[in-house]
C-alpha cells in the first residue's frame, strides 16, 4: 500500500517539477512551488517524519510562498523569455544528476530495517528514551537532550539569518532618494 502512495506522490512531484520548468509566468511558478512543498510534506508523512512534514508544510508551502509573492510584487512577475543557451546548464544538470544516482547505488535499499543508520546510534536513543522516560517523542528527546547544543546553534542560525536579511533589505532604504516616508528608524 505504502509503495503505491509513494509512487503516486513521487509522480506528482515529477509532474509539478516539469510544470515549474515549463511555466513562464512567475506567479504560476510560485503557486506550483507551494504545491510541490505540500506534496513533499505528504511524502514526509508517509515516511513517518511528521515533524519535518509540519515544517515543510508551514515554511515551504506557507511562509515562503508569501515571501515569494511579495518579491514578485516588488519586481516583475514574468521570466525572461529565452535563456541564452541551454547546452551548458543541461550538461551540468546531467552530470550532477548522474553523480547523485551513482551515489545512491551503494546505499542500502529503501526502507530496510537493518541499514547502518538504524543500527548505529538509533537503538541507543530509543532505549535510553524508553528507560529514562524523558520524552515520548524521540525526535524531541534527540533535539532537546542529546543534541541541545546543536539546537542552540540552529536557533542562533535562524536569528543570524534574520539579521542578515534585515540588514540587506534596509541598506537601500536608508540610501534611497525618497527620504519622506521613513519615520521610525527601527
Amino acid at each position: 500500500m505504502e509503495i503505491y502512495i509513494n509512487a503516486v506522490l513521487l509522480t506528482l512531484l515529477a509532474v509539478t517539477s516539469c510544470a515549474i520548468i515549463r511555466q513562464r509566468s512567475l506567479f504560476g511558478v510560485v503557486m506550483l512551488a507551494g504545491t510541490y512543498s505540500f506534496l513533499m510534506a505528504s511524502v514526509f508523512v508517509v515516511l513517518d517524519a511528521v515533524d519535518v512534514a509540519m515544517t515543510e508544510a508551514a515554511v515551504g508551502a506557507g511562509v515562503s510562498t508569501v515571501i515569494f509573492l511579495i518579491a514578485l510584487h516588488l519586481t516583475k512577475s514574468r521570466e525572461y523569455p529565452k535563456p541564452r543557451s541551454a547546452v551548458v546548464p543541461l550538461f551540468i544538470t546531467l552530470i550532477t544528476g548522474f553523480a547523485l544516482i551513482w551515489g545512491t547505488s551503494t546505499l542500502p535499499p529503501f526502507g530496510v530495517a537493518d541499514a547502518p543508520i538504524h543500527e548505529h546510534t538509533t537503538p541507543h536513543y530509543l532505549d535510553a528514551a524508553r528507560e529514562k522516560q524523558i520524552a515520548a517523542n524521540v525526535v524531541t528527546a534527540v533535539l532537546a537532550d542529546y543534541r541541545s547544543f546543536d539546537t542552540l546553534g540552529e536557533t542562533l542560525v535562524v536569528f543570524t539569518a534574520g539579521i542578515g536579511i534585515m540588514m540587506l533589505l534596509r541598506v537601500r532604504r536608508r540610501r534611497g532618494p525618497a527620504g519622506g516616508n521613513e519615520g521610525e528608524p527601527s
Binding site: 515571501i67 518579491a71 510584487h73 516588488l74 536579511i165 533589505l169 525618497a178 516616508n181
Partner: peptide, 12 residues
C-alpha cells in the same frame, strides 16, 4: 521581522 522588512520596501 523578515516579513516586515519585505513589506517595508513595498511602501517606500
Amino acid at each position: 521581522a523578515i516579513f516586515y522588512a519585505l513589506t517595508d520596501r513595498e511602501h517606500s
